[in-house]
Computed example of a mutant assay.
Amino acid sequence: MDFKPKRKTTNILLLISAFVIVSLILWNTNVFFEKFKDEERKKIEIWASAQTELLQSSVEDELGNLPLIVMANNTSTPMILVNKDGAIKPHNIDEKLANDSIQLQRLIKKFAKENEPIESVEEGEVLQTIYYGNSEVINKLKFYPIALLLIFLLFGTVIYFVFKSYRASEQNKVWAGMAKETAHQIGTPLTSLLGWNELLKSEHIKEEITIEIDKDIDRLKTITERFSKIGSVPELHVYDVVLETKKAFDYLKRRSSKLIHFSMNSGNEEIPVMLNPPLYNWSIENLVKNGIDAMKGKGNISVDIEQKGNMVNVLISDTGHGLPKSEFKNIFNPGYTTKKRGWGLGLSLVKRIIEEYHSGKIRVLSSSKDGTIMQISLKIFK
């Protein structure tokens, strides 16, 4: 049964629902903002009326102290009053700005753009004009939709990465399961091959043949062990990194084209390192094979082992076509490959073996049209 169409439809519906919800919230916020601005304007109009009454009457009038009370209650909205004679009176504005005539003129222009000025008119004559800006609450509300969108984006990003991590974990479990099943399946014919080889020995077949078969059987054992360890934490023990590197290097040397020249420089000194030989050798083989592929089966492959302080560096060099510097990090990503055939899992597997299992480092030391040098760095056991 194919679940992909259902999953695709569900994703589309979720996307549409999220878009509708966000649109409704933004629309509702905008409506609330406009309504709040209308209420603010009504408040200013009442204040303007109180100001007009105050100009035309005295405190002994029948209105009493009502205009003064109305005016005193408005402490949040910045305003500038311009009388008919041009006199300017700021209200709820910072003292420094209030004493600066140039800044006041700028504020008048700014307020006029934000809100339509309110005129106090008496018998056809404009007594004063009130220029008012947005209160602190309105200014904060203006940024509310942006803050809301950022929260949605942050929330969506977190969900995306959690889901992506979950999917990656599930895929890793599938790959680990397939690897272990492969190791299990190889075990049955491998046991049979051991029996058949013993039978050949008893038939006095050429010893060289049975020896080579034993080598290939051992190779299959190593491959089986490698696959069986995928998905679990391997055990590390102290081994000579020079000897283990030489084993992997020599194996490929014997089975590669005569057009490839192999060389290894390590000195005679043992270098103890905490290793899991099957996995470490797998890494060396992958790097050497990549070098052979880059050279298209013809060129030089060399391995140099050198100590630097408490670290040992294993350098694998080839004379292939090289890599652009922009791809130095990408080559370790799962799925990355420059080959027409291949899954792009080799180098990502090497990175995991060296860095996660052996607490080392692997990187492209250098690369040009003359070749590439890969470097593995491991801590020396003391």
Rank of each mutant, 00 (worst) to 15 (best):
Ile186Met: 12
Leu148His: 07
Ser192Gly: 06
Leu153Arg: 03
Arg167Cys: 01
Thr157Cys: 02
Leu193His: 05
Phe152Tyr: 11
Gln185Ala: 11
Phe163Gln: 09
Gln185Arg: 15
Ala147Leu: 13
Leu141His: 08
Val158Ile: 14
Glu181Asn: 14
Asn197Ala: 08
Trp175Pro: 00
Ala168Gly: 01
Lys173Pro: 01
Phe143Ile: 11
Arg167Asn: 05
Ile151Asp: 11
His184Thr: 13
Leu141Val: 04
Val158His: 02
Gly187Lys: 12
Val162Trp: 07
Thr157Ile: 00
Asn197Trp: 03
Glu198Phe: 01
Thr182Ile: 02
Asn139Asp: 11
Phe161Cys: 11
Ala179Glu: 05
Thr191Tyr: 00
Gln171Asp: 09
Glu198Leu: 04
Glu198Gly: 05
Phe161His: 15
Trp196Lys: 05
Pro189Gln: 10
Gly195Tyr: 03
Ala176Asn: 04
Ile186Ser: 02
Gln171Phe: 06
Trp196Ser: 05
Met178Ala: 14
Ala168Thr: 03
Ser169Glu: 07
Leu148Cys: 10
Ala183Arg: 02
Ala176Cys: 02
Glu198Ile: 00
Pro145Ala: 03
Met178Phe: 12
Gln171Pro: 00
Gly187Ala: 14
Pro189Asp: 10
Ser165Met: 05
Lys164Asp: 04
Glu198Asp: 07
Pro145Asn: 04
Leu190Trp: 07
Leu193Met: 15
Tyr160Met: 02
Gln171Ala: 13
Asn139Gly: 13
Thr157Ser: 09
Val162Asp: 05
Thr188Ala: 09
Ser192Cys: 01
Leu154Ile: 13
Ala168Trp: 00
Lys180Ala: 15
Asn172Cys: 05
Ala147His: 12
Phe161Ile: 13
Thr182Asn: 07
Tyr166Gln: 10
Tyr160Cys: 00
Asn197Ile: 08
Glu181Gln: 14
Ala168Asn: 11
Ala176Asp: 03
Val162Gln: 07
Lys164Arg: 10
Tyr144Pro: 00
Asn197Pro: 07
Ala176Gln: 01
Gln171Met: 09
Trp175Asn: 12
Gly177Asp: 10
Leu154Asn: 08
Tyr144His: 01
Pro189Ala: 09
Ala179Thr: 06
Tyr166Met: 14
Tyr144Cys: 01
Ala176Ser: 13
Leu150Ser: 14
Glu198Asn: 10
Tyr144Leu: 14
Trp196Phe: 12
Val158Thr: 08
Pro145Thr: 04
Glu198Pro: 00
Asn172Glu: 14
Ser165Tyr: 09
Phe161Asp: 11
Asn172Asp: 14
Val174Phe: 10
Tyr166Cys: 05
Glu170Ser: 10
Glu170Met: 08
Tyr160His: 07
Val162His: 04
Glu181Asp: 13
Gly195Asp: 03
Thr182Gly: 05
Gln171Tyr: 11
Ile159Arg: 06
Asn172Ala: 15
Phe155His: 14
Lys164Ser: 08
Gln185Leu: 15
Ile151Asn: 10
Thr157Arg: 03
Leu149Ser: 09
Leu149Gly: 09
Lys164Pro: 06
Phe155Pro: 13
Gly195Thr: 01
Ala168Met: 02
Val158Tyr: 07
Gly156Pro: 05
Val174Met: 06
Val174Glu: 12
Ser165Pro: 02
Lys173Phe: 06
Leu149Gln: 07
Phe161Lys: 12
Val162Thr: 12
Ser192Val: 01
Leu150Cys: 11
Lys164Met: 03
Thr182Gln: 09
Pro145Gln: 03
Gly177Trp: 06
